Amino acid sequence: MDDDVRRLNALANTRRLLVLLSLKENETPMSIDALATDVAMKETDFPNEDLSDRHIDSVLISLHHAHLPKLESEGLVAFSDGETRVALADDLGDAENILDAVFEGKET
């Protein structure tokens, strides 16, 4: 599969897009726990105190086992501190334009 097609495929999932938006808004590496909470808040539009632990745990598990590995394999995120913190990759290429278009005016 062509590199551009694989990268677009990685962006074809709402949760992965929300991960990238959270990381872009934060601008510094985030713990995976904080990232899961932020993504859960974006998915539900609930403030942190109204989120259930069950929902946050569900997001955390999916990030750890599916979404972050996919984003890392496509060069969109990078881990630091022994894989406990994650940040946007230094060069997102065309993916940055896609993120800007998808979330134009929607940043929280």
Rank of each mutant, 00 (worst) to 15 (best):
D3T: 08
D4R: 15
R7I: 10
R7V: 07
N9Q: 09
N9K: 12
N9M: 10
A10E: 12
A10G: 12
N13E: 09
N13M: 00
R16C: 08
L17H: 05
L17I: 03
S22V: 01
L23T: 02
L23A: 05
K24Y: 13
E25C: 15
N26K: 13
N26P: 00
T28C: 04
P29I: 04
M30P: 07
I32D: 02
D33H: 06
A34M: 04
A36T: 10
D38R: 14
M41C: 14
M41D: 07
M41Q: 15
E43K: 09
E43F: 02
D45R: 09
N48D: 14
L51H: 01
S52H: 04
D53K: 08
D53Q: 08
R54S: 15
H55S: 05
L60K: 10
I61M: 14
I61P: 02
S62L: 05
L63H: 04
L63Q: 05
L63E: 11
A66I: 08
H67E: 10
L68T: 03
P69L: 13
P69N: 12
L71A: 11
E72H: 09
S73I: 01
G75W: 01
V77K: 00
F79T: 00
D81T: 04
D81L: 06
G82I: 12
G82D: 14
E83W: 03
E83A: 13
T84A: 02
T84I: 02
T84V: 01
T84G: 03
R85Q: 15
V86G: 00
L88F: 01
L88W: 00
L88Y: 00
L92A: 00
L92N: 00
L92P: 00
G93R: 09
G93Q: 13
D94L: 12
D94E: 15
A95E: 05
N97R: 07
N97A: 15
I98S: 15
L99A: 05
D100I: 06
D100K: 15
D100S: 15
A101D: 15
V102C: 09
V102P: 05
F103W: 13
G105L: 06
G105V: 04
K106S: 13
K106G: 01
T108S: 13
